[in-house]
Write a protein that binds this DNA or RNA. Sequence first.
DNA 1: CCGAATACTTGCGTATTGCAAGTGATATTG
DNA 2: CAATATCACTTGCAATACGCAAGTATTCGG
Lengths: 168, 168
Amino acid sequence: MSRTVAKDGLGGRRSDCPINFAVEVLGDRWSLVILRDIVFWGKRTYGELLRSDERIATNVLASRLRHLEKEGVIQRSPDVHDRRKDRYDLTESGIALIPLLVELTCWSARNERWRSLTHGGTEAQHRFVAGLLDARTKSRLVRKVHDAARRGSHFFEGITPVSNPRNK
Amino acid sequence: MSRTVAKDGLGGRRSDCPINFAVEVLGDRWSLVILRDIVFWGKRTYGELLRSDERIATNVLASRLRHLEKEGVIQRSPDVHDRRKDRYDLTESGIALIPLLVELTCWSARNERWRSLTHGGTEAQHRFVAGLLDARTKSRLVRKVHDAARRGSHFFEGITPVSNPRNK
DNA sequence: CCGAATACTTGCGTATTGCAAGTGATATTG
DNA sequence: CAATATCACTTGCAATACGCAAGTATTCGG
């Protein structure tokens, strides 16, 4: 018996368009920010994700995590060492989002409105963003982020983040 | 005199993160769908954009167009041939979003949940999506979409779209 | 056993989206 | 030139999503 899909064949989606599909999975104010924290900073628990620079509300985080799990982008599992905790790991489909996250970064990196903001963060972050402006370096970086994710690790491994000044 | 920015240097943004920046510009249920119609189908007027496959509500379209204009992604101008109409054209910043739109398409193209939907559309659309699965073809396609946009044209020029069966 | 940590839920106010109808200006038709 | 159609919206209202503060159940460490 195959997966249940409405008789229009769209399974409740607004259309069969691949861009619309991605928008229905990721098109909100938080999903991609959550995935950023998982991919680049290795956050894996609810509490870690809650402490994002952008200060996501606790009920919204819960709602987005369920959504992303339902869409097959992340997978929840109990933490074996601490039974209070759950882990949220990327699925294959989630790992496949890395080029998209890089492309978002790349677009902002070339955007004047973004560049005119005050930028904090670590040296590693600045070098990453600067590297994306060169095509060769960029594809090398995508591979690195990808490899880290496959190892169950994350890109800024070993780097201590510097938090948003607003959150002091 | 420089553009006014709040004293935190973030100009009202939630953080200085480039991914968050892109999310604040594009992270909603409609912005990328509107840009898809402009880039791939050459829609330029309010009425054309209103007739999207996904059936955007008229007030929401008005709101999103103002938002995208304010964010510098599109530019509004009166139609010289018909004074009832306005044109919405991509800015440089909007053209720079093409790789992102392609990446969204690419992710869905590899996603089983998307592939299991019933797919309509034209032969040209199917060939485009299939082409994205090969890296060489993909970068050639990005260039083609880009070139069309620079000419003030669009990728599926001359192709008549087939509409969503839901909208009959 | 007890206080702290963790992953949530609940309640409530505001903002965004969805739906249907209406409006004023311009273009087209007879 | 008058009637009608087209076009880009606006308005009103309901439903959903988001933001904020507080509370709860379970587990951990001591």
